[in-house]
Amino acid sequence: MCEPKHFTVEYTINPWMDPSQPVSTELAVKEWTELADTYRRWGHQVEFIQPQPGLPDMVFAANSGTVIDGRVLGARFRAPQRAAEADHYRRWFLDHGYRDVTMPTKTNEAEGDFTWTGEVLLAGTGFRTDPGAHAEAQEILGVPVISLQLVDPRYYHLDTALCVLQEATSDRRAHVAYYPEAFSPGSQRVLYRLFPDAIVANAADAECLGLNAVSDGRNVAIPMEATHLADQLINHGYDPTFLDISELRKSGGGPKCCTMELRG
């Protein structure tokens, strides 16, 4: 995670961002701190990278690396305003003992568009990540990749429209929640085939970035407005934790955007 010490909205690279609206860096830090504290209360270890001046979106750590079995695929951002973030995260990995670190040749915004299910890597495209990055991810990470087409610019990354609630194990399929209308008709059919028991979110869930959630298989960090989704989570045995992300959402981010998951 990266503290939003320099958080602001100075430019527009997604439909959520409006530089004419007031933004409170102090409130963003408060929201982010509560998210980090939530992970600690759940019993997880949280690592931090130093925020850098001039990179107001560096708080969205999910966009800068995909880590599976200790192998790291870095990021290559589409927006020039965020390009410098990638190398700061690359150096963090090397400084923290990761040796299998590869920087991509194709544009990919990491866990923004790459979501690990425990069996396959779901890979989004349509607004940020180059379709060619899907094949590159498969080659570098050594896991099977399934491409999904995003069609609604509000849900510009896969992690705004789909959340893995439980990763697959040897005796259990992965369980996900997603918003069908964010995907092309073909991708909707793929998701239904892969996850017939998925939780299906509604428009209100999606519009508050309710699917930009983080689950450890039991606890789920979700925006406080995602009440319909929360009810479904409870019905499926999960324990949702409601969080205020109203300030971070002004830049199009939520709990997952702020969280890179380090696997292995």
Rank of each mutant, 00 (worst) to 15 (best):
P4S: 13
K5M: 14
H6G: 12
F7V: 08
F7S: 10
V9A: 07
I13N: 05
N14V: 10
P15Q: 05
P22M: 03
V23S: 06
V23A: 09
K30M: 10
E31K: 08
E34G: 00
A36I: 08
Y39M: 15
R40W: 07
R41C: 02
H44M: 12
F48Q: 09
G54L: 14
L55F: 12
P56K: 14
V59N: 03
F77Q: 13
R82Y: 03
A84V: 05
R91I: 05
W92R: 14
D95K: 12
G97Q: 09
R99I: 04
K106T: 11
G112F: 03
D113W: 07
T117K: 05
T117V: 05
R128Q: 10
T129V: 00
T129R: 01
T129P: 00
D130Q: 10
P131Q: 01
H134D: 00
Q138W: 04
L141M: 06
P144H: 07
S147K: 12
L148D: 09
Q149G: 02
V151H: 04
P153K: 11
P153A: 14
Y155R: 00
A161Q: 14
L165N: 11
S170E: 15
R172W: 06
A174K: 13
H175D: 03
V176D: 01
A177T: 10
A177E: 04
E181M: 06
G186N: 04
G186C: 00
Q188M: 13
R189W: 06
V190I: 15
L191A: 02
L194P: 06
D197N: 15
A203R: 15
A203H: 14
A206R: 11
A206N: 11
C208M: 09
C208G: 12
G210R: 02
A213V: 12
A213N: 12
G217M: 10
V220Q: 08
E225M: 06
L233W: 00
I234Q: 13
N235Y: 03
H236E: 11
G237A: 07
G237T: 09
P240M: 12
T241F: 08
F242I: 09
D244L: 02
E247L: 06
K250Q: 13
S251F: 03
